[in-house]
Structure formats: structure tokens, C-alpha cells
Design a protein around this nucleic acid. Structure first.
Length: 495
RNA sequence: GGCCUCAUCGUCUAAUGGUUAGGACAUUGCCCUUUCAAGGCGAAAAUACGAGUUCGAUCCUCGUUGGGGCUACCA
């Protein structure tokens, strides 16, 4: 049984890079009929953020990535846990890490270290100055275990370091990169248990991945350098080593490391901007992976079918929003109107536009859908929708000269607008299709240039230079409102 | 500085030891058209550089350059 995990730290929000890591991990597990779990790595008490876990959970669920096991989003926005390998929150597993650390201590694979940060800092400085590789010099490794124990018992502050072999090399397999080789002489004895009793990432993640029976570790490339540490831990514990996949990182448009300074990096920011989860997932999935076919639109289900870790590219990818906009537009167009109305509703409330005014007669709630249909193909995000259709709710202020077609004249507009208004007033059927036919016939009969009628008509109805066509606007506005707006336009021209 | 790692159009990427180096987004031209959007048909745009292997390298090897990661009692 394949088991993968996503193991974020609750330091605030879910990063888009994290979303991709979670996604790839999820896709791989689902494709193989395995399980995807969520573990919370909250071993850094300084960076801990209270609602961090909740925020991550919300973003993950929003994207449709729901863990089978581990931390879950519970009712009423709470964090719950599910599964037999728990707890899945590392701060609740402190005793477990201590036990394993003790085991390594007893076996002589680890030792207490009493060096203070001043000494370590100085050591690092000298090493840098002498162009030496930096790292702990192993000073405390020489201390007799009995003495070390005595000092610990006396309450002296200390950490626990792992003894790393200093000769030969460590070879590891990575599903994306192939074999990776590290020289052991460069490996220093790293800290696995901090002086506050919390484990570092290295110890905690290895212990947990083993305890939670993780078969495939999918994580960011920033972990590649510490892979030898983890391999050594597995070796000392005599545990089976999982398969590793280190994903390439995401970059800013200037190719620097993706940062908050150069734009949004939190998944919740994109959600707040009105991006759809389908678009976000599709876009993120294609940053570093593609099926090798021309197929661009992929639902989460389709990704589960076609995704493959081996096809993930090795090079880091620029996080370029232009394509996200395109994806979002596409999904906005594909979405059933009823669903769009549901999702757009909060945005209209926020904009102070009442989405269900007593308009459109018997059509009632369907009216809102027809309003959205007007502009859905012209906006990139949900958040742009209210402003785009505001003209339906409130006729914008506009200059009289806007009513004059670029190939027409004031006199012409002044002549045609009242005529078309009278003609429309006599019509019985008021839907887009019949309006289009009737008005078309009328124009032909009168032998007017199409634009000389449609332009002023459209501007009268929308009050805008750019807008959807006059027939569809007229249908949405209804006959009374349409005629009223024509009246207004004519009055404007006469002034 | 040291170590690890990566390198195809502006961006995401496809491809093979022999191709007109393909697609998508973005840009742009034309068409459609009352405007905008959409749509249709086009255009421009890349194998970082230098050696080597080879009849032939974008592809294999080495080097250079450039980017990124790590180098924390952060993850």
C-alpha cells in the first residue's frame, strides 16, 4: 500500500509551493490506490502561528485536496485528527522522539553536546574565513558518556547530536533526479534534539515517516542537501528507506526564490482574489509537470489518472500568473451558470449589489444568472464580476457624445434613437433572439447602417463604451428599464 | 566561501543521436464585428557558452557561465 504525506509547518498560511507539493503527493497516492496523509510539523515554537494549521487545512480543502488520514478540517472550522498512526501533530509526539533519541544515545550513535551558540558562531566564522566547509567540529563527541550524563542530570543545557560517518559517500535514489551522491566528510554531526526538548525536522520527520508507514516522501528540493542525514538515521534505526522525490522549487518572475515581496504566495490570497480552485490546481499541476500531450485542461480526477512523478521536470519553474488568469477564464466559462451564481453571490454582497432585485418578473433567481452570463466571458476572476455588471444595476453616468457612433453624427443619433425607442415600445416579445430578429429587420427596412443603430442603442442601455451586445442587455434589463434608459439617452442628446 | 542541484521561445513545456526543434500562455497582424470580449486564420520568438565523442549532436562526456537550494537549537 502506497502512503504519502504532506507535512507543513503551521507558520501562517499555505504557500503555493506547498500546495504543489501537497498536490503531487496526493495525486501519486490516489493514482496508486494509496493513502495521503497530513502531518503537522510544529516543532519550532518561535515560528508557531495559532491558526496556522487551520489556515493550511482550509486552503487544502478548498483546492479539493482532502487527506485520508492525519489532521482534518472538522466541523465549525476546527482541527481534528483521523487514523491509527496518530497523533499526527508533532508537538503531541514529543515522548516518542525522546525515546528514539535515547535509543541512539545508548547505542553510541548520538551524543550530548554542551556547546553554546557563541562558540558555534565563532567556529562557523573561522571556517568561513579559512574557506573551509562549515559544520560542527565534534568537540563534545569526545566526552565520556558518564560525564555527559552527569552534566545532563545536573540540569545543564544541552542538545543531542547524531554521529555522522566521516568517510566514504552516501548514495541515494531520487525518483525525479536519479542517483544523488554526497561526500561523507562534509557531513557534520547535526542536532536532532534541541535543548527545549523538541526534535529538529530531521529526527521528527524520519521517526514519523517510519511510524506512519510512509512509502514515498515527496517534498521540496530544499531538503535534498539534508538527505544524507535522513539516510543515516534510517541506517542506525535499521528501518526501510522510503522512496524520495525532491520537487523543483518555484521562482519569482526574475528567477529569484519565490517570495512574498514580489506578489501573492499564499493560497488564501488567490482564493480572496476570486480564483477558482479548479484553475489553481490545474495551473499549479502544470508547473513542473505535463502529460506530454496537447491536453491543457485537467480536473483533479483526470490528474489522478495521468500524473506521474517520473515526468516531473528537474528544473525550477517561474510562477507566472498570466497563465493562471487564462485558466481561470476558461473555468469561469465552463462552469454551469447555476454554480457560477452560487459562487459569485458573496462577491456581489461584498460589493453592495443586491443580486436578487425584484426585476426580471417571473424569472426570479434565474435573472441573476442571466446577468452573470453577460460578463462571465469578459472577466478573469470572480472578484471582477460585480464591477463588470454593475451597469445593469445602476446606469452609469456618461457623456452625451458617447452615444455618437464613430462613423455617425449627432443629428443621426438624435433621429434614430427616438425611432428605435418607439419601435421597441411596440414589441411584445422581449428576449434576446426575437429582439435580434426584429431589430435586424427594422434596420434593413429603414436602410440604416447597422452601427448607426446598434451603437447608440447599446450605449443607451449600458452607459458604457464597451459592453456586451444590446440584445442581451435589453433582455436582462427588461422592457420597462430599457425604454427608460433610451429616454434618458435621448434627453442627454437634446442638451 | 564550501557542498548539492538545475539549464529548449519572454513564461510553462514537448521532442529525437539525423525534425522546417512541436504545443500552450503572453505579444502581435488580419478576418469576424455596433464596442469590448470570445472565436477563426497567420506572424515573431528558444536548444546559455566552449571543447570532446560521433559521419552527424539540443540530446552523450567534460569544462565555463548563470540560476536555485543547503550551509540554524527554521522547517
Amino acid at each position: 500500500m502506497i502512503r504519502t504525506r504532506f507535512a507543513p509547518s503551521p507558520t501562517g498560511y499555505l504557500h503555493v509551493g506547498g500546495l504543489r507539493t501537497a498536490l503531487y503527493s496526493y495525486l501519486f497516492a490516489k493514482q496508486k490506490g494509496g493513502k495521503f496523509l497530513l502531518r503537522i510539523e510544529d516543532t519550532d515554537r518561535e515560528r508557531f502561528v495559532t491558526d496556522g494549521t487551520l489556515n493550511i487545512l482550509k486552503s487544502l480543502y478548498w483546492a479539493g485536496i482532502v487527506p485520508d488520514e492525519g489532521a482534518q478540517l472538522g466541523k465549525g472550522d476546527t482541527v481534528t485528527q483521523k487514523g491509527k498512526h496518530g497523533p499526527y501533530i508533532q508537538s503531541e509526539r514529543l515522548d516518542i522522539y525522546k525515546e528514539y533519541a535515547a535509543e541512539l544515545l545508548d547505542a553510541g550513535h548520538a551524543y550530548y553536546c554542551f556547546c553554546n551558540s557563541e562558540r558555534l558562531e565563532q567556529l562557523r566564522e573561522t571556517q568561513q574565513k579559512n574557506k573551509m566547509p562549515t559544520g560542527y567540529d565534534g568537540a563534545c563527541a569526545a566526552m565520556a558518556p558518564a560525564e555527559a550524563k552527569k552534566r545532563v542530570a545536573a540540569g545543564e543545557k544541552c542538545v543531542v547530536r547524531l554521529k555522522m560517518p566521516k568517510d566514504g559517500e552516501t548514495r541515494a535514489k531520487d525518483l525525479i533526479r536519479g542517483e544523488v551522491v554526497f561526500k561523507n566528510e562534509l557531513q557534520d554531526d547535526f542536532i536532532m534534539l534541541k535543548s527545549d526538548g523538541y526534535p529538529t525536522y530531521h529526527l521528527a520527520s524520519v521517526v514519523d515517516d517510519n511510524a506512519m508507514e510512509i512509502t514515498h516522501v515527496v517534498r521540496g528540493e530544499e531538503w535534498l542537501s539534508s538527505l544524507p542525514k535522513h539516510i543515516q538515521l534510517y541506517a542506525y534505526f535499521k528501518w526501510e528507506i522510503p522512496e524520495f522525490s525532491h520537487l523543483p522549487l518555484l521562482l519569482n518572475p526574475d528567477k529569484s526564490k519565490l517570495s512574498k515581496r514580489q506578489g501573492d504566495v499564499a493560497v488564501e490570497d488567490f482564493r480572496a482574489k476570486g480564483y477558482l480552485p479548479e484553475a489553481m490546481v490545474n495551473f499549479i499541476a502544470f508547473l513542473g509537470w505535463n502529460p506530454g500531450t496537447a491536453k491543457e485542461m485537467y480536473s483533479l480526477e483526470e490528474l489522478v489518472k495521468d500524473f506521474s512523478l517520473e515526468k516531473v521536470s528537474k528544473a525550477s519553474a517561474v510562477f507566472n500568473l498570466e497563465k493562471l488568469d487564462w485558466y481561470n477564464k476558461e473555468y469561469l466559462r465552463q462552469m454551469p451558470l447555476e454554480e457560477l451564481a452560487k459562487q459569485a453571490m458573496p462577491w456581489f454582497e461584498k460589493a453592495g449589489l443586491n443580486p436578487s432585485p425584484n426585476r426580471g418578473g417571473a424569472r426570479g433567481g434565474v435573472w441573476f444568472e442571466s446577468v452573470l452570463a453577460l460578463e462571465r466571458e469578459r472577466v478573469a476572476t470572480l472578484s471582477e464580476l460585480p464591477a463588470a455588471v454593475k451597469f445593469v444595476f445602476i446606469l452609469p453616468e456618461y457623456e452625451a457624445k458617447l452615444l455618437i457612433w464613430r462613423k455617425g453624427t449627432l443629428a443621426e443619433a438624435l433621429k434614430i434613437l427616438p425611432e428605435i425607442k418607439d419601435f421597441l415600445a411596440g414589441l411584445k416579445k422581449w428576449d434576446k433572439a426575437s429582439l435580434e430578429i426584429k431589430i435586424g429587420e427594422w434596420i434593413k427596412e429603414k436602410d440604416y447602417a447597422t452601427g448607426s443603430v446598434l451603437w447608440p442603442l447599446r450605449v443607451s442601455l449600458s452607459g458604457q463604451e464597451n459592453s456586451p451586445g444590446p440584445y442581451e442587455i435589453a433582455e436582462v434589463l427588461g422592457k420597462d428599464e430599457s425604454l427608460k434608459r433610451l429616454e434618458t439617452a435621448i434627453a442627454k442628446l437634446k442638451n
